[in-house]
Design a binder for these strands. Structure first.
Lengths: 151, 151
DNA sequence: GCGCACCTGACTAAGGAGGTCAGGAAAGTC
DNA sequence: GACTTTCCTGACCTCCTTAGTCAGGTGCGC
C-alpha cells in the first residue's frame, strides 16, 4: 500500500512537462527542477514513452513533451505506466480472486478499495495538478483535518 | 499500490477468528480454513499478537482469539499491524513531504488518496466482514459495475 | 561530421516478499 | 513428573523489486 519513488518521480516529471508550454524539455532540466537522479529519470521517461504518455526527440533542441493534452492524462495513467495495475492483491486483480470460508466478502472490500483509489487517481489530470485548482473530490477530502493526521 | 500476501492472509485469519465464537482456535485450523502455509501464518499471528489484536494460549486446548470485540477491530488495524502505515510515499508519510516546482500540489493528491483508502479500510470491521452486510460505503462502491472492470 | 540529448541493456547493492526449519517454552493431561 | 500439545522465536533461504549507476549506441540538427 505504498507509492514507490519511481511513481512519485514519474508524476513529478510529468507535471513539469504539463507546465512547460514551450517545445521539448530536456531530461536534465526535469531532473534539476524536481531533484531526481538524471540517469534514473531517463529510464522512467522511457517507460512513459512506451506507454504513450510522453514523446521525445533526440539531439540539440531535443527533449520530452506530453503526447496528449495535459487535460487528457490522469495521474492514474502515469502511475500505471511505471508501476503496473493499481491495487492488486498478491499480484492478482481483486476481481479474479476467490475467497473461502469466512473471508468470502473480502473480495468486495478490495474492490471497494480499488474503486476509491481510482476515484482520486483517475479524476486528477496533469492539467489539474499544475493549476491552482484541484478537482472538488480532492478538495473535499483534503479539507477534512483528519486526512492530515498520521496514523 | 498493492496488497501483500501477508496482509491478505492476516485479514483472512482474523476473519476466521471473528467468526469463531467458541474459545481459542488453533493455528492449524486457521491455516486449513484459509489455505495458508501454517508456519508462515504463525509468524503473522505473532505480529498480530504484538500489535494487541489477537491473544493466544499454548498447550492442549490452546489457540488464538481476538483481543477485542470484532466490532472494534477494523481491517486497517490488521493491515497496519503487518504492513506498517498505509499509503506512504517513498517510505514517508504524505503530510511530511515537501514538493517543489510544478509538483507542488501533489502532496494534496497523496493525502486525498490516503483519506480515501482509510474511508474504506477503517470503516469495515471484522464483524462487518463476517456478517452478510458490509457498510454502506462499501456496498455503494461495489454496486457500480465500473468498480469491477480491470484496468 | 560533430555534438547534443535521448535510448538501451547490463550491472549492482540493499532490502523485502514469501516462505521453511529447528528448536524452545508454557499449558494441560495421565 | 513425564508427555503431548500448541504457541513462540530466531535463523535461514530463494527469488524479486527497488533505486539506482555505468557504458555505450543511435538519431537529430547544424
Amino acid at each position: 500500500m505504498r507509492v514507490s519513488a519511481k511513481a512519485d518521480y514519474a508524476v513529478r516529471a510529468a507535471a513539469e512537462l504539463a507546465a512547460a508550454k514551450e517545445g521539448p524539455v530536456k531530461g536534465e532540466r526535469l531532473a534539476d527542477a524536481q531533484d531526481i537522479p538524471l540517469q534514473f529519470l531517463e529510464h522512467i521517461l522511457l517507460e512513459l514513452k512506451h506507454a504513450g504518455i510522453v514523446r521525445a526527440r533526440r539531439g540539440a533542441k531535443g527533449g520530452y513533451w506530453l503526447a496528449k493534452p495535459a487535460e487528457e492524462i490522469s495521474i492514474a495513467d502515469v502511475v500505471r505506466a511505471v508501476e503496473g495495475p493499481i491495487a492488486h492483491v498478491q499480484s492478482a486483480p481483486p476481481e479474479s480472486i476467490e475467497y473461502r470460508g469466512h473471508a468470502e466478502h473480502l473480495q468486495e472490500v478490495w474492490i471497494a478499495v480499488r474503486a476509491n483509489l481510482r476515484a482520486v487517481l483517475e479524476h486528477v489530470t496533469l492539467a489539474d495538478l499544475v493549476s491552482d485548482h484541484l478537482p472538488a473530490i480532492v478538495e473535499n477530502l483534503v479539507s477534512q483535518p483528519d486526512a492530515w493526521a498520521a496514523r
